[in-house]
């Protein structure tokens, strides 16, 4: 049943994205309130804007959108001119609206506002329940409320279906997972990553042991001995932060765990791609349950 859910999730995700592109192509009407030129300078706004903007409306996305490690739409982003989030280059693009993150450089945002450009800042999505609201916020910023409402409704429906599958399952029966990132960091329940685990029917073992956010000592990971080890995909070039994944303890935990999985670009932003991340985790859970 879990794999059925996964397929369904994936299909509807593809539908949402394809629909977005199609709508962009045929619609492109010039509403008075629809800004003609929009520049995005944040990874998460980049992706939502690519999905929701009318054709020709989005004139530039941020450099990070090209990085396949964190951007789920690196291929699509390659079609846009790139900005590095500097006020000068953004200003030169003569945008009507700039899309930025809540934690984008304060100086840059202040400077752009002083130059008379409307800057819309988006908060970091920390919960699955905030995803639809963020889509709606993007719809308003782009003047594409109808498309955004459609996408939000599809997302909510898929999420509700996933959650319905979990109804009746007790927490004790679920496999214990551990998120373990570079530098030994983990994510607690009240984060997007934590909610992805919960939605897939996995327990967040480090959070249960009191490590809600931040560094999870390697010793504690060894003591927790999770059923599912979830690590991050590694970057090219070496770093000590990621070298921790070569530690023999991680090796033997991966070996002993009934399943190992990776987090990737689908986990980073509050976009429809989190459904795909949940699907991946449902597969990891099935593997763990099948073995256990």
């Amino acid at each position: 049943m879990s794999s059925l859910v996964f397929v369904r999730t994936f299909k509807s995700l593809k539908r949402v994205i394809a629909g977005a592109f199609l709508a962009s192509a045929i619609a492109a009407p010039c509403f008075a309130q629809m800004p003609a030129r929009v520049v995005s300078m944040n990874l998460c706004t980049d992706q939502l804007a690519i999905m929701l903007a009318a054709e020709g409306q989005l004139v530039s996305v941020s450099r990070i959108a090209l990085d396949p490690h964190v951007s789920a739409m690196a291929t699509e982003a390659a079609a846009y001119p790139i900005n590095a989030g500097r006020a000068e280059e953004v200003h030169v693009l003569r945008p009507d609206v700039v899309l930025a993150g809540k934690y984008s450089s304060r100086e840059t945002v202040a400077l752009l506002r002083r130059l008379g450009i409307e800057v819309v800042q988006f908060d970091i999505v920390k919960s699955l329940d905030d995803v639809a609201a963020t889509m709606m916020q993007m719809g308003v910023a782009l003047g594409r409320e109808a498309r955004a409402a459609e996408m939000a409704a599809a997302f909510e429906a898929d999420l509700a279906a996933l959650r319905a599958d979990l109804a009746g399952q007790t927490v004790e029966d679920m496999p214990r997972a551990a998120l373990y990132y570079a530098n030994g960091y983990t994510s607690g329940d009240s984060s997007l990553a934590g909610e992805i685990l919960a939605a897939a029917g996995l327990r967040n073992a480090p959070a249960e042991a009191g490590y809600a956010w931040g560094k999870l000592p390697l010793e504690m990971l060894a003591m927790i001995a999770p059923d599912v080890m979830i690590t991050a995909r590694r970057y090219p070039g070496g770093s000590r932060a990621e070298a921790i994944m070569d530690h023999p303890v991680i090796g033997s935990l991966r070996g002993a765990s009934t399943a190992a999985a990776l987090t990737d670009h689908d986990w980073v932003c509050g976009t429809p791609f989190v459904l795909r991340a949940i699907g991946d985790m449902i597969e990891a859970r099935s593997a763990a349950e099948g073995d256990g």
């Binding site: 530098n183 390697l218 970057y235 090219p236 770093s239 990621e242 530690h247 023999p248 303890v249």
Partner: peptide, 25 residues
């Protein structure tokens, strides 16, 4: 210059040193 985004933060490790999370390797 490293392509790895974590590398630049490790300047402090190389200048100050640490024994955290080292292994028998």
């Amino acid at each position: 210059l490293s392509p790895n985004p974590f590398a630049a933060n490790e300047i402090v490790f190389w200048m100050m040193g640490s024994l955290a999370d080292r292994s028998m390797v």
